[in-house]
Design a protein around this nucleic acid. Structure first.
Lengths: 249, 249
DNA sequence: CATGATGACTTGTCATTACAAGTTGAGACG
DNA sequence: CGTCTCAACTTGTAATGACAAGTCATCATG
């Protein structure tokens, strides 16, 4: 009964989501410290005024996010903060190349406004029918084409970007410096594929050449998905380097 | 009512776990194919003879494992079988797949002792003439070959590993649990290439298919290079997944 | 003193019920 | 013919109730 932060059921956001947010805030804010036991399910039922099934859904989500862990018969505890977890320092194309003294620029292939569709909408967390901006650019290194970037952004941002000098400026630097959007983390998926006809023509390689396909979803620091990209890198001219840590469990 | 695979409640294993296993088997076995809709919750309530909450717990687990995805108002569908490995954390292949509920095993192709040579010696920080163990394994996911792993380790460790059950145990886990070596970080380089004749034969793909080539140098927590590997993943069956923090992009 | 039983906690599993919200197709209507 | 409404599906959210099972401190018993 310590404090009775009532959650409201009239709100459009589900009760268990509200509870999740409250707990997340308390954990990140230090109210609940690592390895400390958090209130039991029945205590939360009382303090939040909800049923056990709702509390359990919130706790289950937090557990699968790695924020807490539960021990049968004992209780739920705050996980150790991820310490070194995501130290994988991604060296972006522009930055890495500039550091090595290479000159790069981008050629804008097309810029369109279209409906998000299911795949893009799901990634950017917007409705299928909402509009997004699609940017296609070929990136050059030493006058050699090295990658095709296909970016999807919410239309509001895409419209502003359309007026910028996309040939020489990095989208992410524009977003951060000019628009004041601070970027958080990104999720990447990397796979190998073969260049089809149109991709081969853009990258000036043979059809059927190996290509690194990278899907990148970038979030703001607040956790809002902002930019969904497909990057196609020439396999013969690019290597992706990263460094990762061993998790401790 | 098609078939009534009753689950038994007397069993010590929870009902939702039994249902998960049944569904997992049907998906991996091809009864439910990728993008195909699986039976609705109410159908499963009848066919399994359990309550909706139990069905939902099974489905929720499968969803978070990435085996299925749900669309509100439409139903639940089988995910594309593309296995993926999250490399935000350093994990062995088997380790990562086991967490997602996939079955894996390795086939030992060859194990040799030979001189390090310049490239391997430089990576492992040993003399060119010193001996190293070369391990070649084909890794299987769901009875399909998915990658060729070529590992180089110092001979002292390689000799011990030669006696282990490398078909079913992860090298990383053996090193950590049995040998007490705690792993630190790893450096990766990823690129795309085409399968040559011998690689294609081992992975049962066409010559010239796209392959993800990964070079991985793993260090102990103390910073000693320990394991230098070349991994060749089938491009059509594998994705590398990564989550990174801010930094410059 | 050691040991075992007990009870009061905790989380885990499961059933039943109810309504909200998204999707889709059929049929009524203009 | 197009469009609109609506019913019949789907999954999402939530309450209530019950018992199982693990943990731990306390207390009675040997």
């Amino acid at each position: 009964m310590a404090n009775t932060k009532k959650v409201v059921s009239l709100s459009p956001v589900p009760l268990y989501t509200q509870i999740k947010e409250v707990l997340r805030t308390r954990i990140l804010g230090g109210t609940y410290k690592p390895h400390q036991q958090i209130p039991s399910e029945s205590e939360m039922m009382n303090s939040f005024g909800v049923s056990r099934i709702t509390v359990r859904q919130a706790l289950g989500d937090l557990q699968k996010e790695g924020m807490i862990f539960k021990i049968h018969g004992k209780g739920a505890f705050v996980s150790k903060p991820k310490a070194f977890q995501n130290i994988g320092q991604l060296q972006g194309f522009g930055e890495a190349m500039a550091r090595m003294g290479y000159e790069t620029f981008s050629q804008l292939v097309s810029i369109k406004t279209l409906a998000a569709g299911r795949a893009v909408g799901a990634k950017l967390k917007i409705k299928e029918r909402e509009q997004v901006t699609e940017l296609r650019r070929v990136r050059y290194l030493n006058r050699e084409p090295i990658s095709l970037d296909v970016s999807y952004l919410p239309k509001t941002i895409g419209d502003r970007l359309a007026k910028e000098d996309l040939a020489h400026r990095d989208i992410f630097l524009i977003l951060e410096n000019d628009y004041g959007l601070s970027l958080g983390q990104a999720e990447l998926q990397i796979e190998a594929m073969l260049a089809d006809d149109s991709l081969a023509r853009l990258l000036k390689i043979e059809e059927g050449s190996p290509v690194l396909r990278i899907e990148r979803l970038t979030f703001t620091a607040a956790g809002q998905p902002l930019d969904y990209e497909h990057l196609f890198y020439r396999g013969d001219a690019f290597q992706y380097r990263l460094r990762i840590e061993r998790g401790h469990i």
